[in-house]
Amino acid sequence: MQKKNFTEVKEFIFLGFSSFGKHQITLFVVFLTIYILTLAGNIIIVTIIRIDHHLHTPMYFFLSMLASSETVYTLVIVPRMLSSLIFHYQPISLAGCASQMFFFVILATNNCFLLTAMGYDRYVAICKPLRYTVIMSKGMCAQLVCGSFGTGLVMAVLHVTAMFNLPFCGTVVDHFFCDIYPVMKLSCIDTTINEIINYGVSSFVIFVPIGLIFISYVLIISSILKIASAEGRKKTFATCASHLTVVIVHNGCASVAYLKPKSESSVEKDLLLSVTYTIITPLLNPVVYSLRNKEVKDALHRVVGRNIS
């Protein structure tokens, strides 16, 4: 019977923001604007870092990788979500849902560990400046990026394999994309094992990066406090402020979304959290690094000035 139910479910239907009724057009305009700004900001960051040789450093290499990952991350989710706000009936095949979840988990995990690599880069730059170029070689940077993506790949395979071996009875996903819990709710059988897998994976993806970044910043702050001049301390910490801002918001949203008790879960709260980490957080990266980072702004001025000339 379970196998029969599993094979009968060929597609899912997203409810999305149907409960918002006449406000859906307003949401479409708001989300489309944010999405365009996110794409434009991340593309500008990647382009500037690529063409300006002053930014050919490990720190900006990781930033360009993060911007690229965030761009693909939003492409996996946001276009279909925007479409659902205009065309209310939004089915997705079982294979399409599995693919969306697969890439979502890969890229979300990849982003967490890229932020960790950026924290390690700041630690080496501030605490071991004389050995920086030796430690943060091109090979080391490539290994950290590949390790981030590889970790995401393993987590995605684990999640999707466990999830789509479940028999499904329902077809209506009370969400705007194939997120883990909304799809899990459609299963015909007990999902305790899947919930344990989700908590295990989420805890690893959230707490390992947070722990490593915390250790990095304890060592960074201890080094900063040893700097004699107040101006030197301020300048050194300023190089870490943008990264720390993105880390706090990114991991904070993920922690609330995937580690909160089921008793505190509701459709409205889940939608709000999902909008935060799928639409708003990706915009944070280009905004923080373009508005608060002097080197990026200087590089942008150089490129714009060169093109005008």
Rank of each mutant, 00 (worst) to 15 (best):
V296D: 07
K234H: 10
V267Y: 05
S290V: 12
M163H: 01
V288M: 14
K297C: 10
F207Q: 09
F20H: 13
N194S: 12
L82S: 01
F20L: 15
V246H: 13
V303E: 06
V247Q: 05
F177I: 06
T276V: 11
M155T: 11
V296H: 05
S83T: 01
A156D: 08
E11P: 03
S68W: 07
L283P: 06
V160F: 10
V275P: 04
Q90N: 14
E268N: 07
D179I: 01
T116R: 02
N307I: 12
L15V: 05
M59F: 12
F207K: 06
P286Q: 09
L283F: 14
M184F: 07
D174A: 09
Y73L: 11
L225A: 09
K138L: 06
M81K: 00
P79K: 01
L130Y: 10
I224V: 15
I106F: 03
F214N: 06
L244T: 12
L225Q: 15
G232S: 10
C97W: 04
C141H: 04
G119Y: 02
S93H: 01
I224D: 09
I49D: 10
F102M: 04
N251G: 11
F164R: 02
N198Q: 12
F87P: 00
M101P: 00
H54E: 14
I206Q: 08
T161Y: 09
D179M: 13
T47Q: 07
C253R: 01
A98N: 00
S84D: 01
D52I: 12
V247M: 08
F61G: 12
P91T: 08
S290D: 03
I49C: 13
G150E: 02
P79T: 01
Y258Q: 02
C253W: 02
V267T: 11
S223P: 08
I77M: 03
N110L: 12
G170V: 04
I25M: 13
T33S: 15
I280E: 03
I44V: 14
L186F: 07
T236Y: 05
S93I: 00
M81I: 00
F103H: 04
H54D: 15
T71P: 02
Q143N: 10
Q2D: 12
C127P: 05
F177E: 08
F17D: 14
L37V: 06
L219W: 08
G119L: 02
G305E: 12
S222G: 00
Y60F: 15
A95G: 00
V134A: 11
V275C: 14
R233A: 02
H175L: 07
I196A: 14
V201T: 13
K262G: 07
T192M: 09
G252W: 07
Q24T: 08
L284I: 13
M155L: 06
L130I: 06
N307E: 14
S19Q: 14
P182T: 04
A241H: 05
V9W: 00
V304H: 10
S229W: 05
Q2A: 09
C97G: 11
I279Q: 10
L153P: 03
F237P: 02
K10Q: 04
C127W: 03
V249H: 03
A142R: 15
G96P: 02
F17E: 11
T171M: 06
V173P: 05
V208I: 15
D174N: 13
I25C: 03
E8Q: 12
T278K: 09
P129I: 13
L284M: 15
C240Q: 00
